[in-house]
């Protein structure tokens, strides 16, 4: 093979002229750039929306944020209104929702993924769980109204924080089941086989190997589901969250049966007031809700990292 006298480029090499390949590099790179630009634009748009929202809300609400706002009950006078009962109500709701939804959701996820035989019945359950995750939240509200407020009134005390929490638990149950199953499915089968080959029973394999490995994923899914529950308005409105609560549910078993309100409800009530001066405090409420959400997601990440590090 001979080279042309002074090649400076790969295409200067001899024999290239009658090649059957037309590299057309310039236009291939142009397409590459164009696609990068499009994806960048898509990112930018969602970023702009988010930042605008944040600025708008913080701009409106920053003025009303202070300690009194956090610790006072609502009032008919905007200047004196606070969201303490709503904040406590939200924490109550989340606590109940988590305590109920986590064991049931994770349990069903483990059963469906690890124990259930693969037949038409379990496939039917699978399809239904998937569909339930997409059912509008108001439908869960109506279900909660019938089951928890009416039928189970002796236990829940009617329109109570318990009825609200149980309704939200129903709402996020499918999400927890689906994310649990995904986390379990991500565990490599070589790990299970390794356990079985050492004479472990199914329960030992699940408890010591599979569950330990999938816990970060399960926790992340659960906390994201709880983040969804915290922002839900419609279902708890239906089961009777009140717009004006001047007290907080006491921290006791009786407290479970007390009336309640929650942050999204409080914000909704303030916004729907005719008086203009409630707008800033509604914005303040949104900021508080966002901060609570942010705290939850941060704790999700911290929890996940903690468990991931423990493994190694």
């Amino acid at each position: 093979m001979t080279l042309s006298s002074n090649p400076r480029d790969l295409s200067d090499l001899q024999g290239d002229a009658n090649s059957q390949f037309k590299p057309n590099l310039r236009s291939r790179y142009r397409l590459d750039r164009a696609f990068e630009l499009l994806t960048w634009l898509a990112t930018l748009i969602s970023l702009i929306v988010l930042v605008t929202l944040l600025f708008d809300v913080i701009g409106d609400g920053a003025g009303s944020l202070n300690w009194d706002f956090l610790t006072s009950p609502p009032s008919r006078r905007a200047a004196r209104a606070g969201l303490w009962p709503a904040l406590v109500g939200t924490v109550w709701l989340l606590g109940i929702t988590a305590v109920v939804a986590f064991p049931i959701g994770v349990g069903s996820g483990i059963f469906l993924e690890e124990f259930a035989p693969d037949n038409w019945f379990t496939r039917l359950i699978e399809i239904n769980v998937g569909n339930l995750a997409a059912v509008p939240s108001i439908v869960y509200g109506l279900l909660g109204l019938t089951v928890f407020v009416d039928i189970l009134r002796p236990i829940t005390g009617g329109t109570s924080v318990l009825a609200g929490g149980l309704t939200l638990a129903l709402l996020i149950l499918p999400i927890i089941i689906v994310s649990t199953r995904e986390a379990l499915r991500a565990v490599p089968s070589s790990l299970r086989q390794g356990g079985f080959a050492l004479g472990a029973t199914r329960w030992q394999v699940i408890r010591d190997l599979v569950f330990a490995q999938s816990l970060p994923g399960i926790l992340t899914g659960t906390i994201l589901a709880l983040s969804r529950a915290i922002g839900e308005t419609a279902p708890i409105l239906v089961v009777g969250a009140a717009g004006y609560i001047a007290f907080t549910p006491p921290l006791s078993l009786e407290g479970l049966q007390s009336d309640f309100t929650a942050l999204p409800i409080q914000i909704y009530v303030w916004i729907s007031r005719a008086k203009k001066d409630f707008e800033p405090i509604a914005a303040g409420g949104i900021v508080v809700l966002l901060v609570v959400l942010l705290l939850m997601n941060t704790s999700a990440i911290l929890l996940r990292n903690k468990f991931q590090n423990k493994k190694l």
Binding site: Q193, G194, A197, G199, Q213, K311
Partner: peptide, 27 residues
């Protein structure tokens, strides 16, 4: 328990070296 197995791809458990050995004995 009586007939052990080693696999094609090494598949240690995501646990400490000590626990990798102790696991089978313990269960």
């Amino acid at each position: 328990r009586r007939i052990g197995m080693v696999f094609q791809k090494p598949n240690p458990f995501p646990k400490s070296i000590y626990e990798n050995i102790a696991f089978g004995a313990r269960i």
